[in-house]
């Protein structure tokens, strides 16, 4: 094992990430072997990717927040809130599709600003802030849409159907390209820019960073803003794949996004984050959902399994840290 860790290629990619990719492949093979034709290769990959898109954006966003040592439990409902408000503007007030898409992202941004401001400037614990804003997001969406579900235009819609090209264009997976581009961008922000450096350092020891003359409040807030904005983008990918959103839902995606993030090696206590890990983690979670569905298991079982994954991943992180100390 030690020898393997010293191998330059392994070192570069990270043993953790290689293992995760291994898990991903093994999972796929097992599903195929057990389920056979109930798990068709091409369709399964397609549906997994569809899930990866929206979940991936949520996960990338929340990676920044977790890197500061915070948490955001509002991302799922915020995503739905974004899609509902902007979709309702389009269907009921005749707002053009392009503008609705902008509104969608802006709503997410606003939630990010709200959460970030409360956490860093008002010193309200992130757990409470995000729990509360989860309810606000759900309530706001219900009030705004008068508790109706909202459907975004279908691909066949001659006027507005074009927006679905963000997921796929004539069979080409544009969604995958956009998602990976964003992942690379997030990686650059986190590891190669000043804000990213501050976010990681303040997650590790906020007081030492503050005493170095850094405006920690501003940078902590930024992480929530990134997170909220990403939820807005996630919303677009959600409706471009699944068309319809209903008010009052979205909680389950919190856990799934956080699970993907933590599984990828981002530490819940802050200071350590892996964007590459998050991407692979999200793929594993998404594949798992497809597998569960192919097995004929319902939402309930799905939630149980995700819950267990979060606990196992966080426990693994905590115990790894304890061993180190």
């Amino acid at each position: 094992m030690e020898k393997l860790k010293q191998n330059p290629i392994v070192k570069k990619l990270g043993l953790n990430r290689i293992l995760l990719v291994g898990i991903l492949i093994v999972m796929f093979v097992v599903f195929r072997a057990v389920l056979g034709s109930k798990f068709p290769i091409v369709d399964s990959i397609k549906s997994t990717l569809n899930y990866v898109y929206f979940l991936g954006f949520l996960s990338l966003g929340v990676t920044f927040v977790i890197a500061t040592g915070g948490i955001d439990f509002s991302i799922g409902p915020v995503m739905f809130c974004c899609a509902l408000i902007s979709g309702y503007c389009m269907t009921s007030y005749g707002v053009p599709c392009a503008l609705a898409m902008v509104i969608c992202i802006l709503v997410g941004l606003c939630f990010g600003v709200f959460n970030g401001w409360l956490v860093s400037y008002m010193s309200v614990p992130p757990f409470i802030v995000s729990m509360a804003s989860m309810n606000i997001a759900k309530g706001l969406a219900s009030v705004f849409t008068k508790t109706q579900s909202v459907s975004w235009p279908l691909g066949s819609d001659p006027e507005n159907g074009w927006f679905r090209n963000i997921v796929s264009y004539n069979g080409f997976p544009t969604g995958l390209v956009i998602f990976l581009l964003f992942a690379v961008l997030c990686g650059i922000i986190l590891y190669r820019t000043k804000p990213g450096r501050y976010i990681l350092c303040l997650g590790s020891n906020s007081e030492a960073v503050r005493l170095s003359g850094v405006n920690t409040k501003k940078w902590r807030m930024l992480s929530y803003i990134i997170c909220g904005t990403m939820a807005g983008i996630a919303a677009l990918f959600f409706v471009a794949t699944y068309t319809t959103v209903q008010p009052g839902y979205g909680d389950q995606y919190n856990n799934e996004a956080i699970a993907g993030c933590v599984m990828g090696g981002t530490s819940m206590v802050g200071g350590l984050a892996s964007i590459g890990g998050t991407v692979i983690g999200v793929c594993i979670i998404s594949l798992l959902q497809q597998g569960i569905m192919a097995f004929g298991l319902g939402k309930g079982q799905q939630m149980i399994i995700t819950g267990i994954i979060v606990i196992v991943a966080v426990y693994a992180d905590v115990s790894a840290r304890r061993r180190k100390n």
Partner: peptide, 24 residues
């Protein structure tokens, strides 16, 4: 350990913490 340095980060990250703008 509490107020001086970010112990889980490298010497580099700690040395440049107060002067980030010089390195961007």
């Amino acid at each position: 350990r509490r107020y001086g340095c970010v112990v889980q980060k490298s010497c580099i990250e700690n040395t440049t913490l107060a002067t980030m703008e010089q390195y961007t």
